[in-house]
Design a protein around this nucleic acid. Structure first.
Lengths: 239, 239
DNA sequence: GGCTTTCTGTCGCCCGGACGACAGTTCGCG
DNA sequence: CGCGAACTGTCGTCCGGGCGACAGAAAGCC
């Protein structure tokens, strides 16, 4: 295993701060895999026999229904771990993971991982942290879905995506995502997303280009994210 | 600690199958608490300094926004564990827990629990299972919220509640919940829930009474739960 | 350099479902 | 036993936002 790959593993929440021997043992289990852009890493319903960690590239996790509608749950990049749920309880995968760029990952087989979890309490504790983090993320999705209208959800999600995947540039936080994908993230329609985005562009809060959104006024977006459906009416009345 | 209390603890997913010594050590940490019907056990934002296990009674877990709107996330009864997220990562509670009956719980303080998790790998592994179970439950909420319309969500949730909290009776599976609470569970309005419930009553799929729903044809409900928004139209066209 | 694909920007229509308002019931409680 | 609170059953109104339909623009791809 290359030195840089080990460095990537070391920086994530799961493995950060683990004893060197423990890290080596996990590294010994891991297999490197590459995926071309668009390749499916696993799909909903597959047996969950491995844990993954992204070395380089990007992976999107989503759910689909039979009709092909899709909801994105998360975007993962270098250092992120995914596929933990199924690996721990051994049940089928709850979501589908697709590489959206040329992507390299580590694959850690379930059997070896379970043994290691049993042996290394620190690893278990880290894994618990990872699951908690996921749980908070998903609970947040539920809460926002229940309480916020599309504009608030959009603002909130833009800020979160910006924080985790944005590139800081002089004009602001740059996000590489199409409006259609953004809509899938919110379970909203592309059209409505576009409408809000444009309103915000006119106010100077964001700038838009094909496949990118640049956040120029995070404060303003945060205010929209905080305001729920009822306040939206108030805003319209005022205008 | 009473024998019956220990029996309750032993049957849940977290502690089931643990070594006797390990179980005793946790029992040594635990404190028994009682709550009257309507009492708040903890609320969203509180520091998460304990794990809870229900001995008897019922606890409802929900999120609230500032305007008082509420979404139920779960209903817990004897043997269920709750409050795990905040206890593990030490961050504020993500939801509010309220006793809906006279309720007794065990409270296990964070500090002691963490030590025990570090010492007993089997306990950690069990805790991982518990978190996975929660994660699947919450992911399911997201997926259903995104893909299913109110009738399908209602059918799906009724079946799930029936499975976990229903009483089997000659007429069918009896569920003790008001239509308003059911609506909060789906993030839907009480009125629409009532409308669907009544349509189903007329078809003989459920029977209704003040504060209770009896599932008489689980198959029929399952079919509704499977059918998403688009098929609803098809059904209407046919009629 | 053309051709296809994939985005963005816009309309208009229409429907699911939220919300307010009441009337009638049934509990629980003083 | 009587009163108030909580629940169910129904209407009508109104609107957020889904969906189909295009047109133009930018980006791969042969």
């Amino acid at each position: 295993m290359s030195v840089t790959a080990k460095a990537v593993l070391r920086q994530n929440l799961l493995l950060r701060g683990l004893a060197e021997t423990s890290l080596d043992r996990i590294a010994g289990l891991a297999v490197r895999r590459s995926f071309v852009s668009g390749a499916t890493i696993f799909r909903q319903g597959d047996p969950g026999d491995a844990l993954f960690a992204v070395i380089a590239g990007q992976v999107r996790v989503s759910c689909q229904d039979e009709t092909g509608r899709e909801v994105f749950l998360n975007i993962l990049e270098s250092g992120d771990v995914f596929g933990e749920i199924a690996v721990i309880d051994g049940a089928p995968r709850t979501a589908t993971a697709v590489a959206t760029q040329e992507t390299a990952v580590f694959l850690i087989p379930r059997s070896g991982l379970l043994v290691q979890l049993q042996r290394d309490p620190t690893l278990s504790l880290h894994m618990l942290q990872v699951l908690c983090q996921r749980l908070r993320w998903v609970s947040d999705l539920v809460e926002e879905g229940a309480f916020l209208d599309v504009s608030a959800r959009l603002a909130s999600r833009l800020l979160k995506l910006g924080r985790s995947h944005g590139k800081v540039e002089p004009q602001g936080m740059t996000l590489r995502i199409s409006q259609g994908d953004l809509a899938n993230f919110l379970s909203a329609s592309r059209q409505v997303v576009n409408e809000h985005l444009q309103a915000w562009r006119d106010k100077g809060w964001v700038s838009l280009a094909r496949g990118t959104v640049v956040i120029r006024d995070a404060e303003a977006l945060a205010a929209v994210a905080r305001r729920n459906g009822s306040d939206t009416n108030a805003a319209r009345k005022q205008h």
